[in-house]
Design a protein around this nucleic acid. Structure first.
Lengths: 242, 242
DNA sequence: TAGCACCTATAGCACCGTTATATGAACTGC
DNA sequence: GCAGTTCATATAACGGTGCTATAGGTGCTA
């Protein structure tokens, strides 16, 4: 019978640690800060988590389960390739939403002590890819495809986190995503801008056009028109809305 | 007039720090260990580097310059795409050779304090890609291509470092490398988004996007925006020469 | 009420990064 | 040659850190 307004010390420790880690910009957080914020003394921490590292591991584990829940919560569109895009974007978004947590989860992996949850993330992505494979859309094994996609996804997210939020260019994500997907999956019959149902992929075509416009500006559009045009193009190719 | 057998304390500190960081498997290394290994007392460290972090930054900076030297030392084969593969593989190899250093260099980047050397690495890769662009083998701008390639390269290397050396599968690297390269560059002839000169064809890409939009309307644009967008697209597609 | 887990607090240890102060060494101008 | 200056190193200590030996509640079962 707990009072509702007052979570147990263990929970308060977890929350305090998570909050302090998220605020304090990557600088180390002391156990004293945490225990004070949780209104608890030192031995309580060590009773519940054994270690400072144990507490942080618990925070990371919670982060992973939040991430995996979000991934599993995504709908299945019936178009496997489209699902891949969705999961990729969701991964990036999670990283941008929880940058410090993400750095510990995916950027800091020590060889031997690697969180097993990364393997879960990989396994889940593999499931999504297995659906693509079932639709005969994969040109490599789901396992290899999952590893490659996850690696690229992490690299892109780390790079986006590393640069100031203001000048973040999400097209890096869209572009790399399409690169990996098109290497791993086949766009049905031959046409690189068309997917299974024969419906042309707007995103792929938009990215191609955007790329082409980088090196050669059309003279049919005024510079102000071009500016707006490129903005829309960006919007289409990053599919952040939806 | 230095004795040859005895490097200056500053150098000894640097070497000791680098060695201890490399050995001690990612666990924190104390200033006392370092100063003891360098046969030096604490104030010497602070005189030369100001800070523990300053010392570690110096180690990282040395790592970066070693990396960049290796990159710049690679020969130019005359085949830009082949060069890209070589630089990619060299990056991965550097990460596997100095895993802990690599983690600090590329896996640990804090947004504000990001080492400027990462930008140098990016800039160098951009130079290599500029050569590919000059050979009319690029379908996106060198800058975007460099960012995408570097991001994927880092992601793959981190993933390889994270798994036990025994079961490392380098094919993950090769596969992802080819994915990114083929999305960024064209294998000489035959690419539908590339015209004879090898420069990306805005017209072809615009036509493809136009076609794609016929059957699937993006929800990122309002209907009035879409109308104008399609009109401009038409104008670009019907371009005569150039 | 007694016993028994469980959880929490007091007080302190050993270590850490860091520095105020002092000492030595090497070069300068005279 | 020697005072003055500057650079490089050492002694000793301070406050903060992760952690724990020990002891004190607290609620449960008997």
């Amino acid at each position: 019978m707990k009072k509702v307004g007052e979570p147990a010390p263990k929970d308060r420790l977890l929350r305090a640690a998570a909050a302090l880690l998220a605020e304090s910009n990557g600088e180390p957080v002391s156990t004293r800060q945490i225990t004070e914020a949780a209104r608890v003394t030192a031995p309580t921490l060590y009773h519940h988590f054994g270690d400072k590292e144990g507490l942080f591991d618990a925070v990371v584990a919670e982060g992973f389960s939040e991430y995996l829940d979000a991934e599993r919560g995504l709908p299945t569109s019936g178009q496997p390739i489209e699902d891949l895009r969705m999961h990729w974007d969701n991964h990036v978004q999670f990283g941008l939403d929880h940058p410090h947590l993400y750095l510990v989860m995916f950027g800091n992996i020590r060889p031997e002590r690697r969180p097993s949850m990364v393997a879960s993330a990989e396994a889940f992505l593999e499931e999504v890819l297995a659906r693509a494979a079932a639709a005969a859309r994969l040109v490599v094994s789901p396992r290899e495809a999952a590893r490659s996609m996850l690696a690229a996804n992490i690299g892109v997210t780390l790079m986006l986190i590393a640069e100031p939020a203001a000048k973040r260019n999400l097209e890096l994500s869209a572009m790399t995503r399409e690169a990996v997907i098109s290497a791993v999956a086949t766009d049905s019959e031959g046409d690189p801008t068309t997917d299974t149902e024969g419906t042309p992929s707007v995103v792929v075509a938009a990215i191609a056009l955007n790329a082409a416009l980088q090196s050669s500006h059309p003279d049919q559009l005024s510079s102000s028109e071009l500016k707006l045009f490129l903005e829309w193009l960006q919007r289409i190719s990053s599919r952040s809305g939806s």
